[in-house]
Amino acid sequence: MNQVALIDLLFRLADDELLVGHRNSEWTGVAPIIEEDIAFSSMAQDEMGHALAYYTILHERLGQAPPDQLAFLREPHEFRNAALTALPRRDWSETIVRQFLYDAAEHVRLECYAQHPFEPLAHVARKIHGEEKYHFLHARTWMTRLAQTDESRQRMQVAIGILWPHALGMFETGQSEQDAPFDEASIMEAWLALITPILVEAGYQVPSSTAIYSRYAAPTPDRIELLAAMQKVYRIDPNAEW
């Protein structure tokens, strides 16, 4: 895999984790029950920690800027996250559905990357996979639980419908990635094979909508708003210690 493609892949992984972690941290203090408040704060910290691990590889092994600069100083058009991860924190149903769809993708993806020929990535993927397993289990439990009353199942179904095209958008083929060891189409296949039976068994319908690709498109308003909030203090003086 050429270096440009590798850098691009790591930015996609890191930016997804950072933004979804940022969104999850917004639940801290206001989740529907105290126990979930604590759970989402934990997952947010895991995800931000994973982003840091990827940015560290980018910095130490691939000649990119230090992690704080990558997170707090890049412009919105330089980020490579899927729109799914930047969607604002709205209803709990959307949060759970995003977490389920995203964690399932992570689960499948990291299983592949654990065998990646670029050893620093393979090493981190193996480590992260262990933590993501619990995130996926958590999201999956919620998906099943919230399918059990008409009211909650309907809310969840609406959320699935809203998020589905953005979830498919996670599997956008990277730029200059012809020789990638794991292609996005196969990862998506494995993802669908993992989540479809769970959704169907819980009584949800799997939407037929198609993907909205956003990683390389003009930044979404959500991404712009998120980054403006996240970078606000650091950018007061990027040369200062914070």
Partner: peptide
């Protein structure tokens, strides 16, 4: 939390 200015601060404040 959304404005914490470095990885270290963001993680520590969330925790």
């Amino acid at each position: 939390i959304p404005h914490a200015p470095t990885f270290k601060r963001k993680l520590a404040l969330t925790a």
